[in-house]
Amino acid sequence: MNVGLGLPIADPALLLDWAARADAGPFSTLGLLDRLVYDNPEPLVTLAVLAGATSRVRLQTEVLLPPLRETALLAKQAATLDRLSGGRLVLGLGVGGRADDHAAAGTGLRTRGRRMDEQLPVLRRLWSGGPFSDEAGPVGPAPARPGGPELLFGGFKPVALERVARWGDGFLAAAPPAWVGPLFDAVRTSWKEHGREGAPRLVSQITVALGPDEVIEDARASMGAYYATSGASDYMLSGLHTTPAAIRDALARLRDLGADEVMLYCWGRDPGQADRLADLV
């Protein structure tokens, strides 16, 4: 089972340090979340910078929100990053559920799922060299990976899980370990029902903070601020893993459920956590 790092968003200037430590360590992937109306770095721009500072780790969005973006431009940006990083881009995708993001983007909150379902075949067609429409031709450059970057889908509802089998390569379960088993089973079942060969790649995520008290408090403050408007702040904070034993136990549970990769999502800014977490994996 691979282990990646989800990057903290509170201080973008530190992310180059995080990336260098991760690339030199045992980690498989660097992940970055996507919001519009929030004080976080834009993920495709940031991962492009980190691609130039690394040579090995994959670069993953957790999750990018296509409904907030224009389709052809998104296809071009993703293909460019995939090409320049040597095929290391992984696009984790989701519809997004925060009204302010959609208000700022001028997109409909209630139609976000329908919009993404319309975007997905266009993205796949453009990445395969096809035209945008009858009025507009292909959009380059060709991505490094034929057919486009690896696609993971996040979500909890059946329609979201079905997108994995219809359009994707795998599933990103940004959920507590107790929820992961049924979600993995539903994705596997849908995969078979759609006649897909092989198996979906299954990726899970846990939140972690490892270090002195100030590191843990920094993580709790950042998490609390991020989830403050969701009504789930206390619940999310209760799932923060702050000891080596708790992190190892969660990794073991997710491995037993069949996770191919677990992302250790870090909210505290201290890059030294990358080294401390490396000692666990």
Rank of each mutant, 00 (worst) to 15 (best):
Ala209Asn: 08
Tyr235His: 08
Thr229Pro: 05
Ala24Met: 03
Arg21Thr: 02
Pro146Ala: 08
Asn40Trp: 11
His194Phe: 15
Leu59Cys: 03
Leu161Gln: 05
Arg145Asn: 13
Thr189Ser: 12
Ser133Trp: 00
Val187Gln: 06
Arg188Asp: 09
Ile9Arg: 15
Arg35Met: 07
Ala48Pro: 13
Gly231Ser: 13
Ala186Val: 01
Ala232Gln: 13
Pro138Arg: 11
Gln119Met: 10
Leu240Cys: 01
Val159Arg: 03
Glu197His: 13
Gly96Gln: 01
Ser55Val: 14
Pro138Val: 15
Ala13Met: 01
Ala245Gly: 08
Gln119Tyr: 10
Val203Pro: 04
Val215Lys: 10
Ser204Gln: 02
Ile206Leu: 07
Gly113Asp: 01
Arg248Pro: 04
Thr107Trp: 04
Arg69Thr: 13
Leu210Glu: 01
Ala53Trp: 00
Arg110Thr: 10
Trp167Arg: 02
Glu261Leu: 09
Asp260Lys: 09
Ala178Trp: 10
Gly25Leu: 01
Gly272Ser: 07
Ala99Ile: 15
Ala252Gln: 05
Val49Pro: 05
Ala99Pro: 03
Leu264Tyr: 09
Ser233Cys: 08
Gly272Trp: 00
Leu172Arg: 02
Leu47Gly: 12
Thr71Pro: 13
Ser55Cys: 09
Val215Asn: 11
Asp82Ala: 00
Leu172Val: 05
Thr46Arg: 08
Trp127His: 01
Glu62His: 04
Asp11Ser: 10
Pro271Gly: 14
Gly239Asn: 08
Gln273Met: 15
Met116Trp: 04
Ala219Tyr: 11
Ala209Lys: 06
Met236Val: 15
Asp100Ser: 13
Leu210Arg: 14
Ile216Trp: 06
Tyr226Leu: 12
Ala72Arg: 14
Glu42Arg: 03
Asp34Gln: 14
Leu68Met: 07
Trp127Ile: 00
Asp256Asn: 06
Met116Pro: 00
Pro212Lys: 02
Arg88Met: 10
Thr229His: 13
Gln205Cys: 14
Ala209Thr: 05
Gly155Gln: 14
Thr61Glu: 06
Met1Ser: 06
Leu47Asp: 11
Ala79Leu: 07
Gly258Met: 14
Leu16Phe: 06
Pro158Phe: 03
Ala103Gly: 12
Pro26Arg: 11
Glu62Phe: 13
Leu89Trp: 06
Gly94Gln: 00
Leu33Ala: 13
Val90Gly: 00
Gln119Gly: 03
Gly92Ala: 06
Ala252Glu: 01
Val49Asp: 14
Met1Ala: 07
Cys266Tyr: 08
Ala48Gln: 06
Tyr38Gly: 09
Ile247Pro: 12
Ser28Phe: 02
Arg114Asn: 07
Pro182Trp: 07
Ile206Pro: 09
Ser28Glu: 04
Thr207Pro: 03
Ile247Asn: 11
Asp234Met: 11
Arg163Lys: 09
Ile216Tyr: 00
Glu197Gln: 11
Gly96Thr: 01
Phe153Ala: 14
Ala199Phe: 07
Ser28Leu: 03
Ala259Ile: 08
Val95Tyr: 02
Ala13Ile: 00
Val57Ile: 15
Pro141Arg: 04
Met116Arg: 07
Leu65Cys: 11
Glu162Ser: 10
Val164Tyr: 03
Ser133Thr: 07
Met236Lys: 14
Thr229Gly: 11
Met1Gln: 10
Leu109Gly: 02
Asp39Asn: 02
